[in-house]
């Protein structure tokens, strides 16, 4: 059963959640991570990021760990990891299905 019941993650959501897998992150670090990882394809402004972080916090996928001045740091929760795994499995299935279909066509 899917951990996250609100449907699949969008691309920005997927990458933001991915950014927490290795370590705790603050706002600008998340942006840098996502931009680096996607070679600049996915960009995050503060409005978009704030909405996503608020959404993830509401759903219990991430939690705030520390506040240092204006920097707030977040970490992924167990539920967040599970949601990410689910999404990864879904994407893999999509990729496999696509590859199979393409292979059949090529053949």
């Amino acid at each position: 059963m899917a951990v996250r019941e609100k449907g699949p993650l969008t691309e920005p959501m997927y990458y933001v959640l991915m950014s927490f897998l290795g370590q705790e992150m603050c706002g600008t670090e998340i942006t840098e991570f996502v931009e680096r990882k996607t070679a600049g394809r996915v960009k995050l402004g503060p409005g978009t990021l704030y909405t996503l972080l608020a959404k993830f916090q509401d759903e219990g996928l991430i939690a705030e760990t520390s506040v240092a001045g204006r920097r707030r740091t977040y970490q992924i929760t167990g539920q967040g990891r599970a949601a990410f795994r689910d999404e990864l499995a879904r994407l893999r299935a999509c990729v496999d299905d696509g590859a199979t279909a393409l292979g059949r066509l090529d053949f």
């Binding site: 969008t10 920005p12 942006t31 995050l44 402004g45 503060p46 409005g47 978009t48 909405t51 996503l52």
Partner: peptide
């Protein structure tokens, strides 16, 4: 500095 909203769908949602 980046624009606050880089994802129109998320902006629309708000």
């Amino acid at each position: 500095a980046p624009e606050p909203h880089t994802d129109p769908d998320i902006q629309l949602e708000q």
